[in-house]
Design a protein around this nucleic acid. Structure first.
Lengths: 186, 186
DNA sequence: TACCTTTTTTGACAATTGTCAAAAAAATTT
DNA sequence: AAATTTTTTTGACAATTGTCAAAAAAGGTA
């Protein structure tokens, strides 16, 4: 299942959906450090990571802050820009040599116009990522830095091995130094 | 426009949507402190506040934490439970005597099955609340307690006058005492 | 291997926010 | 209006996290 977020859906039509979406998917390979999207531009693509790791990030007071990671089967985009069609504050870069599928906003829009019965799946996709985001808020509000780190270790241990700690630390909302201290005293 | 989140949509069909949704809406009046939804139950309704204020909240280490406020024209539900059909950690209560419209999950599901072209609007609604949530994450991560409070004062000053500071403080992720100190030294 | 760059850790200290207890102020009820 | 309850503020102190600077470790390259 290309769209990991829809993997639990039991629906005979899903095969058609996949085949139609496949028509608007374009695959590319990128090398480490390549940029998929740069801040200031409107983000016109939804990216599916087939192989590799990507992160979205932005600058706050000159500091580089990671907003989201995507590994194999994950999706990434500058979601506010993609949805609202406005300039993005986010950048998206690859952290490993990667294979990435991209779907253009225009193609997706056209597909949804032509086959509005696919709206349902976009809705389901949004529901899933909404839940993910809501959990992240709870996490930030009500767990300590250490708890957030432990959760990450437990939930996505492989990410820790593939991504530098400075990105991890900003992702969980703390400084690199604090994360380092958390790790040693654990 | 009943659905504030869809107010910017320019679409001739929106009138039909409204009329169909109106058929599944039920209006009730509630008095202050009444509970719309209690934790442990699956949340079966989406609530639209016509008049009054509601908040969703839950308990973390015995402390009452506000997750969301809804004033006139706003929507509120235990969104994770409503979407995933699982038990909710949230409660929803009214903070003033209120008039509330409720839409049952079942009725909405049925309506979407019958008229799948309405899926698009649900998708647009979800996009909007996703953006709101994403902004909230940025706010929590990258603004100080004082900045978060000032933003609230600027953005929703009337809320401050209608809701007690203990709810405001937990909403912006700080203690009541810290909020009190922020307010005096401002 | 040696060199250079990037990442991670450590130290010292400062700033922010939390905790607990109590007082003051405001709102609600009798 | 008085009494009661709830909300807000204040004080003293502790805990957490951040900042800045530097050292150590790890990774990549010539």
């Amino acid at each position: 299942m290309i769209f990991e977020k829809l993997k639990n859906i039991n629906d005979p039509n899903i095969a058609n959906l996949l085949s139609d979406f496949q028509k608007i998917m374009k695959q590319n390979t990128y090398s480490k450090k390549e940029i998929l999207h740069e801040e200031g531009a409107i983000c016109n693509h939804l990216y599916l990571i087939q192989k590799g790791v990507a992160r979205s990030f932005y600058y706050k007071d000159g500091k580089d802050i990671t907003a989201h990671f995507a590994v194999e089967n994950g999706t990434i985009t500058a979601i506010d820009s993609f949805i609202q069609r406005k300039k993005s504050r986010y950048n998206i870069e690859l952290l490993e040599d990667s294979e990435v599928i991209s779907i253009s906003h225009q193609d997706m829009h056209t597909l949804l116009e032509e086959k509005p019965h696919y709206e349902k799946y976009v809705r389901l996709f949004l529901e899933q990522i909404y839940i993910d985001l809501a959990e992240r808020i709870e996490d930030l509000l009500f767990h300590s830095a250490k708890e957030r780190y432990d959760k990450l270790v437990k939930h996505t241990p492989n990410l820790l091995q593939r991504v530098s700690l400075k990105h991890i630390s900003s992702y969980i909302g703390i400084t690199q130094e604090t994360l380092s201290r958390i790790r040693t005293q654990a």
